[in-house]
């Protein structure tokens, strides 16, 4: 086991898992911060809908000048503010995606450059502490893909939102919820458990 390429790759993999571990936490906390924002979008959507449904001049509010327009303006501003905040969260998601992607591709590049010394036997060899190279690389690739896909979905969600499309706003919380894929996310936690001994090993 004194293959220098293997040792270096192990170091790279450890580093990658550490990056994934950190970023996984960041991702989860950002996602948590998003839910009140998305639900307030839904709420604003309902308020805008109600405002549209009500014939204000025929209500006790009718004597107030421009009430409907003014309220509509205020609500639209509120929608824009929330969307702006969500846009900031999207940047945080992007940072996670980039950090993970950078690490994973570094590990893969190193492997591809050293395929000469890392033969099949070496790649599938594993011990109680160290999973096989093949497994670890595959897990990292899955993780990378997960964040890429998730980021795209979230980005697409935000880009299609419009403050004048009430249906989109009203259904925002549900649609946002449906974007997560709990299985894939659990896969990352599982992976981190599986490599925990490996990460602690010298």
């Amino acid at each position: 086991m004194s293959n220098p390429a293997l040792l270096s790759l192990h170091q790279l993999l450890k580093q990658s898992f550490r990056v994934v571990e950190q970023n996984h936490k960041v991702w989860k906390s950002v996602l948590l911060e998003c839910s009140p924002l998305v639900s307030s979008l839904g709420n604003l959507g309902e308020q805008l809908r109600a405002l549209k449904n009500v014939q204000v001049p025929q209500t006790p509010l009718g004597r107030f000048p421009d009430l409907q327009e003014r309220l509509h303006y205020k609500l639209s501003i509120a929608v824009d503010t929330v969307m702006g905040k969500l846009g900031e969260k999207l940047d945080a998601f992007e940072a996670v995606r980039d950090a993970v992607s950078k690490q994973v591709s570094a590990a893969f590049q190193f492997y591809e450059r050293n395929t000469g010394t890392l033969d099949i036997a070496c790649c599938v060899n594993r011990s109680a502490v160290t999973p096989s190279l093949a497994d670890m690389l595959e897990w990292l690739q899955d993780t990378d893909r997960y964040y890429r896909l998730q980021f795209l979905k979230r980005k697409n969600f935000l880009q299609t939102l419009k403050s004048d499309d009430l249906t989109l706003l009203e259904t925002a919380p549900k649609r946002w919820e449906s974007l997560s894929s709990p299985n894939a996310e659990e896969g990352i936690s599982d992976m981190l458990f599986q490599v925990s001994f490996f990460m602690d090993s010298e």
Partner: peptide, 19 residues
């Protein structure tokens, strides 16, 4: 009327005349 109630609530919270 649920819609009208909602309008009352948003008018209260968002204060259309304080710009």
């Amino acid at each position: 009327n649920a819609d009208l109630s909602m309008v009352y609530l948003s008018a209260w919270l968002y204060q259309p005349y304080i710009d």
